[in-house]
Computed example of a mutant assay.
Amino acid sequence: MLINCAAYQDGRKLADIEIDDISVYVAKPECFVWVALKDPGPGELAVMQHEFGLHELAVEDVRNGHQRPKLEEYGDSLFAVLHTVEMDDEGELVIGEVDVFVGPNYVLTVRNGTRQGFQEVRARCEREPELLKHGSAFVLYALADHIVDRYFPLLEALGAEIEELEDRIFDRQNLSASRAIIEDLYSLKRRLVLLQHHVNPLLEAIGKLTGGRVPQICAGMPAYFRDVYDHLERIVKTIDGRREMIVTAVQVNLGMISLAESEVTKRLGSFAALFAVPTMIAGIYGMNFQHIPELNFKYGYPVCLAVMLGVDLILWWRFRRAGWL
């Protein structure tokens, strides 16, 4: 589906144009055409391939989809695969793909599986004509920068989940939910790993535009792409830090479970000791022997009860003082 098709010259928008007029504007000096497609069919891709002379292998990647983030150079043009990561209502991550064809006189963006559009990117480019004079390379930078910036709110949301889970770990009223906490921590770790799998390759791809042999089409833009690269490095380090926090949280949660079990064991042992003394005394005097001391003692029964109660009170005081009860 065609989202937008516009021509730009000298950093300013000339007009929204029809597909049939693309070749006319592409031929003009210092002019480039920016076309945006969403979930296109094979016919639309074939038309774009004919209009812009796109490389067959790059078009095949778009048709097949599910490409890892990458940057490939075909002659004087570039083909970039960027991944969008969005969070649905249930907190799960939804992965989308944005394929970008960049040539000296054209930019073609193809969105697949993304819910949010990129109208903000187009508006930003049109607000900054001095930068848009760099042509299609600046559009590629603006798209990459916008996609990377969308990762930060996701990290904040996942970070908030970690903090909430940490509070649950140390909630003494919630020790019975330890299994659920571990399941939630594992789910959080899985989402962080998924995000990392889409960020790390993009870091490598953007690195090709920041130094060394920079493609000619991006010759004037290394400083801008370096800014995107720095953002990606921050994201990668943040993900690594959050993953370590989750591993630590799992270990702490298991430690809290062990402490809780230890507390239960101590309490059970204390109550067992309180019942053990009366049971021992009652068992001794309940033996069927004829000659047992104090059997004929007049106050033997109340004395036994008093001894049982006294010993239990002493044990209770000691256990209470030790923190077992």
Rank of each mutant, 00 (worst) to 15 (best):
L194Y: 14
P29Q: 09
A15Q: 13
C5H: 03
E204W: 05
V311D: 06
P278S: 06
L313V: 14
I181F: 10
E263R: 15
L295Q: 14
A260C: 13
L57F: 13
E233N: 12
A58I: 05
A46H: 13
I314W: 11
A260L: 04
P129M: 04
A223Y: 06
L54I: 07
E244K: 09
L71M: 11
A137N: 06
V311Y: 11
K70S: 09
K298N: 10
G241N: 03
V199Y: 02
A282H: 06
T248Y: 15
H291W: 15
Q251E: 15
E92M: 09
V47E: 06
W324L: 08
G286T: 12
C125E: 05
G117H: 02
A219V: 11
G255L: 03
M221N: 08
N112Q: 06
G241T: 02
V100L: 11
P69N: 04
V102P: 01
E130Y: 06
I22S: 06
C5I: 07
G53F: 08
V311L: 15
L37S: 01
A7G: 03
A80R: 00
E161N: 05
D312I: 14
V247N: 14
L232Q: 02
Y106M: 05
G255C: 06
D230V: 08
Y141W: 13
K208M: 09
Y151Q: 02
N288I: 06
V107Q: 04
R127S: 15
G96F: 04
N112H: 13
A272W: 09
G269C: 12
H197A: 10
M1P: 10
D227P: 04
E128K: 15
F152N: 00
E263D: 15
S77N: 10
F170T: 09
G96Y: 05
G255Q: 02
L254A: 10
M87N: 08
V98A: 02
A7V: 11
R12T: 14
K237T: 07
R127F: 10
V26W: 10
N112P: 01
S187N: 15
P104M: 13
L188P: 01
L254S: 08
L305C: 13
F101K: 02
A306E: 13
S23Y: 12
L203R: 11
I284H: 11
A46T: 13
G323P: 05
F297K: 07
V250K: 14
E44V: 02
L175I: 15
G220L: 12
L132E: 08
L315G: 08
V250Y: 04
E204Y: 08
I95F: 08
E161Y: 01
E73Y: 04
C304Y: 07
D21P: 12
Y285W: 14
Q196T: 03
G91Q: 11
C218F: 04
H197E: 11
D240S: 09
V100M: 04
G283F: 08
S136W: 04
I162Q: 01
D20N: 14
V59T: 10
M48W: 01
L194N: 05
M221Q: 09
L37K: 00
S187M: 15
V193H: 10
M1C: 07
W34P: 00
T248C: 03
C304S: 15
M287K: 09
F319E: 05
L315P: 07
A160K: 10
D240M: 06
L195G: 05
E60L: 07
E86V: 02
D10K: 13
C125Q: 03
